[in-house]
Design a binder for these strands. Sequence first.
DNA 1: ATGGCATACGTTATAGCATTACGCAATCGA
DNA 2: TCGATTGCGTAATGCTATAACGTATGCCAT
Lengths: 140, 140
Amino acid sequence: MTAHPELTRNQALVLKALGQAEIPLSAYTILDLLRDDGFRAPLQVYRALDKLQELGLVHRLESISAFVACAHPHCHAHEIIAFAICRTCGRVNEFSDAGIEERLGRWIEAHKFEPEKTTIEMSGLCAACADPSNGASVGA
Amino acid sequence: MTAHPELTRNQALVLKALGQAEIPLSAYTILDLLRDDGFRAPLQVYRALDKLQELGLVHRLESISAFVACAHPHCHAHEIIAFAICRTCGRVNEFSDAGIEERLGRWIEAHKFEPEKTTIEMSGLCAACADPSNGASVGA
DNA sequence: ATGGCATACGTTATAGCATTACGCAATCGA
DNA sequence: TCGATTGCGTAATGCTATAACGTATGCCAT
Ligand SMILES: [Zn+2]
Ligand SMILES: [Zn+2]
Ligand SMILES: [Zn+2]
Ligand SMILES: [Zn+2]
């Protein structure tokens, strides 16, 4: 399902590390996780991340300088993606909203701006962390 | 007009530096600009920036790790702010859109998320840089 | 097969961004 | 006067990302 035969060994290892994590990982955390697999330098991680981002399999969260595996590894080439990031448990919710895309599209047209990358990130508390009595579990 | 008697000397110097710049500045660039005013260490800049952000006079652009003076130094306490950042000339356009705010509000309500900070940044080419024949000048 | 090109890799060093930790000084209200 | 708060100055450190080098590999047109 999420197999990508095109991936090199390094790219596959980085993607696997991100896929197994419940929260976003920094490049240096990934490096540490992959030391046993022969990783020695940040560039090995960054190069793999670059490629994975190109392929749409990984996203960078600008506001926390960390990376997540795409939650919808199908093609969302044309969608604008948004993230809700919990500052307590670290969990991330990836979603898209046609309405937001349409509003931004209006602004872009009116101002003749040519966007190449759009970042939408909300930081705050997820439902579980905001109200622990609500039943959901809070990760380690 | 933009005077804030509450500001300390360091805060006022940082705000002035940002106000005179046409593009966002990194903390270390601000530090260099203010060496003649006695600034010696990054922390002097970061502490001033923290306070200025609290006051809503400065924004941090997450996607480029840089800071801008607020373009609308009146109160926009309740608005969600968005930025269009030109990757060529570096100029930034700050705006807000009630429609986007409303759409995000819907998602937040549906998911019981409690946002504390929202980041919306578009990178790309401004009208002048995308089509130089269009008349506008392209900054240094 | 051979040469040229493109892509990925490995390593070292360096650049750029941000915070921790400590102590001092000024301010303000109890 | 005391204690609390806030800001300041300095040094050290940590985290994030890229530059620059050379090597290896696969592919393809010659
Ligand atoms: Zn995705
Ligand atoms: Zn949470
Ligand atoms: Zn503003
Ligand atoms: Zn421009």
